[in-house]
Amino acid sequence: MNEQLLEAADDELVVGWRDSEWTGIAPLLEEDVAFSSIAQNEIGHARALYELAARDLGTTADELAFDRAPGEYRCSTLVALRLVPDWARTIARRYLYEQADERRLAALKASDDPEVAGLAAKIDREEAYHRMHAQMWFDRLQDEPRFLEALEKLRPLVDDRGEQPPGLAELWEEMTSVRRSVAGATW
């Protein structure tokens, strides 16, 4: 179960990180605000999932999120890609990710562990807004060749989980730079 939780947590953490790269530079100010909420929700989901896993592993959510080596993360190739400033690819990833996440959440909701099932249900209810947002953009961009091309290119990466997804090492460096600057400190 912890494997599944970590996989979900790592995906949410990294996709949330990538989505937060748009804060301040999204195509429309209103969209910037909306997109930032999605990023925060994802980080929030990651935190809750890490906390559940941390309970059994005797550690903390922050330690799981930051203090593992890059090779230990279980996120997909799809989420680790740095897509800024390409909006077509960003929306394509959102759309594909939400579809895959919905399937994963359905499985977690059916878990024997009531805490896992409960958390998955909560996350799923928040994700409903993400799906609405992704669909809204899909409907708007579905006649754009660059968007269709992006969907095609990214689709195979949804379930691709390798040792070191491209982009993750660089992300990890930046993500942990302050934390590593004073080892063991409280921030």
């Binding site: 990180w17 301040g24 100010l29 910037d32 925060q40 929030g44 934390r179 921030w187």
Partner: peptide, 27 residues
């Protein structure tokens, strides 16, 4: 830039929310 380097999940969330507010204010 510091959103990406925030050293805890809590700080990451708070900083993202703060910047989000500022964009909202601009709107």
């Amino acid at each position: 830039e510091w959103i990406l380097r925030a050293p805890t999940l809590q700080r990451k969330l708070a900083l993202t929310a703060k910047v989000q507010d500022e964009v909202g204010h601009a709107q």
